[in-house]
């Protein structure tokens, strides 16, 4: 198959993600068509890469748990919520 070995593993993964979102298997004709297009299209490759970078930076921005929060929740449930002050 033309270009089968040209597309990078990273791009394959991205295409897989796209096809998963579309509810299709990566071997479906639609997904194969997308993969073949991306092999020859620097614009699409770059766009998909930029989407991936965007998701990556947001994965790193999870909110940290405030100090003592876990303990306060444990305490709340220790004797039952009737003892808590919601």
């Amino acid at each position: 198959m033309k270009g089968k070995d040209i597309i990078s593993p990273q791009c394959k993964k991205i295409v897989y993600e796209i096809c998963e979102r579309m509810g299709e298997d990566m071997t479906s004709p639609h997904c194969r068509e997308i993969m073949h297009h991306i092999e020859d299209c620097p614009e699409c490759k770059a766009y998909l890469e930029s989407l991936k970078k965007t998701v990556h930076v947001y994965r790193k921005t999870r909110e940290e748990i405030p100090a003592g929060l876990e303990e306060r929740m444990m305490e709340l449930l220790k004797h039952g919520p009737g003892h808590a002050t919601p």
């Binding site: 909110e63 405030p66 929060l69 929740m73 449930l77 919520p81 919601p86």
Partner: peptide
Amino acid sequence: TTGPLYNLIFQMVRNREDAEDVLQETYI
């Protein structure tokens, strides 16, 4: 579950005090 739930709640309400209230309500 505290960490994942707190992150989700905080990203929605964007206030630490409100986020803790909602987390408490969730566990109750």
